[in-house]
């Protein structure tokens, strides 16, 4: 299984990867440090799940989400954001994200997310 982790913060990527690897040690992780790279990596690797931050340089998460959904309307995109207000949440769900989770993500939450999306 391939999982794409897109966040401009190395800390955020490391935390997500550590938490994913703890649960799915054999999955392949692809990293992207902005929205544009995320879109390119999505096209190239067709990951099963995308963890996507919203505030990123070059191309933000909203635009990347739109482009990913354009490529594959069934893409499983999980938006991971520090903006935990309902307005931002509603907006990304409308754009096609499967779920929105607040940062930082606990390993319990990660388990619930993976269970819901993988099985």
């Amino acid at each position: 299984m391939k999982i794409l982790v897109a966040d401009d913060s190395k800390l955020a990527r490391l935390s997500l990867i550590k938490s994913i690897k703890g649960l799915e040690p054999h999955c392949e992780i692809i990293e992207a440090e902005n929205g544009l790279i995320a879109v390119e990596q999505f096209k190239k690797n067709l990951p099963s799940i995308v963890f996507l931050d919203l505030t990123m340089p070059v191309m933000d998460g909203y635009e990347a989400l739109e482009k990913i959904i354009e490529m594959n309307s069934k893409a499983q995109v999980v938006v991971v954001t520090a903006d935990i207000q309902s307005q931002a949440q509603a907006q990304v769900i409308a754009l096609g994200a499967k779920m929105v989770i607040p940062k930082p993500i606990s390993s319990e939450k990660m388990q619930a997310v993976l269970e819901q999306l993988v099985f």
Partner: peptide, 19 residues
């Protein structure tokens, strides 16, 4: 790396304050 961590933690902190 230090600045990256501080920036990310502050982003989370600000999200929390807004909520």
């Amino acid at each position: 790396d230090h600045l990256d961590v501080l920036r990310e933690l502050m982003n989370i902190a600000v999200g929390n304050a807004t909520a």
